[in-house]
């Protein structure tokens, strides 16, 4: 897949969502990655053309954000959180194991193009540490054997489920979702024991918040007024 007339149609649709079309530049760059697999010069030109910017302005933005890749990533872009908490809880060990098994380092792709690796920063899932991602979908509470199993399955083209989301799609599929196009997967997965830890504890121990008044103070004020 590459840039087509449909890409331009989609880009204009993104631009129309905002009061000022330049606001669509981040979604547009995601869209370019969904079509090209990376931010190409042609993709930059497309963004510039649709939004009335210079290619230098677009390139300046594209190079600022870590999710925009200027060289090809794998069909599955795998992240291992090596920020402090995840690193200490096992992220470093997972990173070492994956890097050794795949024979690639940070920001590198396997020769067959299936997997790229990135040392990622905090994913806002510290309650689920150590955390990995594949094309940014959560792979929570990982350990070394499971991490290796995940990449082997991805390499072999076998389905891998995100621990709190859908079956992991390709890098280009997920970039299209990030550009704001519905993929119909919103109802997949989503919850786990960590998210419900406090609620479960409260229910088991009969804890609850006191109920409020029968009516909102705003509707009371209205009635009295």
């Amino acid at each position: 897949m590459s840039l087509t007339d449909q890409t331009i149609v989609d880009a204009r649709e993104c631009a129309a969502r905002y009061p000022d079309s330049r606001s669509a530049l981040l979604p547009l760059l995601h869209l370019v990655q969904s079509a090209e697999g990376t931010v190409t010069s042609d993709g930059i030109a497309l963004c510039a053309d649709v939004l009335g910017l210079t290619t230098a302005e677009v390139a300046g933005v594209a190079t600022f954000y870590t999710m925009y890749k200027r060289h090809k990533v794998g069909r599955y872009h795998v992240g291992v959180c090596t920020n402090t908490l995840c690193a200490v809880l096992g992220g470093d060990a997972i990173w070492d194991a994956l890097s050794e098994r795949l024979g690639v380092g940070h920001d590198e792709v396997t020769a067959d193009g299936t997997i790229s690796l990135e040392r990622i920063e905090c994913q806002a899932a510290c309650t689920h540490a150590p955390v990995m991602t594949a094309n940014w979908e959560f792979l929570d509470d990982m350990d070394v054997p499971r991490a290796l199993e995940v990449v082997e399955k991805l390499r072999a083209g076998e389905p891998v489920m995100s621990t709190r989301g859908p079956r992991i799609g390709t890098f280009q599929e997920i970039e299209r979702s990030l550009a704001g196009f519905d993929d119909g997967l919103a109802n997949e997965g989503g919850k786990d024991v960590r998210m419900l830890a406090g609620l479960d504890y409260a229910k088991q121990h009969g804890m609850s918040a006191p109920a409020g008044p029968a009516h909102s103070p705003l509707s009371v004020a209205k009635t009295e007024g």
């Binding site: 992240g79 806002a124 940014w136 959560f138 989301g165 979702s177 519905d182 919103a186 109802n187």
Partner: peptide, 23 residues
């Protein structure tokens, strides 16, 4: 008359959920 929810990009499933809720 215009609101924006700026969600970090690295959480596609959260973005899906919020976008679906908005729809």
């Amino acid at each position: 008359n215009h609101a924006f929810i700026y969600i970090r990009g690295e959480v596609p499933h959260v973005i899906r959920r919020v976008a679906a809720a908005a729809r």
